[in-house]
């Protein structure tokens, strides 16, 4: 069943990609910036369009409460991070409601989001309330990024399924800008140019 959905997404990809480039620039469009650091900063600025989008931010809370919707309201029903697994409080896990796929429900204008796994980013990766600069610094800090190298970060952003959900999100909410593929390219280019952070 999941395979079928991925296939359908692929079939749509040409038309989607054209629209996607309009709201997220590809990495090569930054080649004109001569200064390497400036280029790197600009690339991160472009990545930040995705990173600061509600699709990403909603699961990177700093207060252990997930957010919901394009207006980033507090998650309903009330939910908290729970323990280190970031998978909800005792007895009530994220997948009590979130299945392995998005789910259409009758009489409701929004699908119930689904992906396996479905969970919050770790507590030390809380982004809500941080500036783009602060998010960038945190992203590079192994102590606060799940002990990831820059290569790991790149792989995570480019291939992680839950990150990818930001573009495969079902009915009733806005997709993250661009595509996961463009985000992956931007991230690689950012790293190649020295992974500089905006001020």
């Amino acid at each position: 069943m999941r395979v079928a959905i991925l296939t359908a997404a692929a079939a749509l990809s040409t038309t989607v990609a054209l629209a996607a480039e309009a709201d997220l620039r590809r990495s090569e469009s930054f080649d004109a910036i001569q200064n390497r650091i400036e280029r790197s900063v600009a690339l991160f600025g472009e990545m930040a369009k995705v990173i600061t989008h509600p699709r990403c931010m909603n699961c990177h809370p700093a207060d252990n409460i997930p957010r919901q919707g394009d207006d980033q309201r507090l998650h309903r029903p009330p939910m908290i991070r729970g323990g280190e697994a970031s998978f909800g409080p005792s007895g009530l896990h994220c997948n009590s409601c979130h299945g392995s796929e998005n789910l259409a429900v009758v009489g409701h204008d929004r699908d119930i989001p689904g992906h396996d796994p479905w969970q919050l980013a770790p507590a030390n990766m809380g982004w809500i309330g941080l500036s783009v600069h602060e998010i960038c610094v945190q992203l590079k800090d192994p102590a606060r990024n799940g002990n990831r190298s820059l290569a790991d970060i790149s792989k995570h952003l480019a291939t992680d399924g839950l990150v990818g959900w930001g573009w495969h999100l079902g009915k009733g909410r806005e997709a993250a800008p661009g595509t996961q593929e463009i985000l992956g390219e931007l991230t690689q280019a950012w790293i190649k140019t020295g992974a500089a952070c905006p001020k």
Partner: peptide
Amino acid sequence: ALLGETPDPSDDDIRNGMAANL
């Protein structure tokens, strides 16, 4: 399910674990 995971829950454990049941 709550007691299955936390046999001796605190007040907060109960409130947080039951908050999604109206």
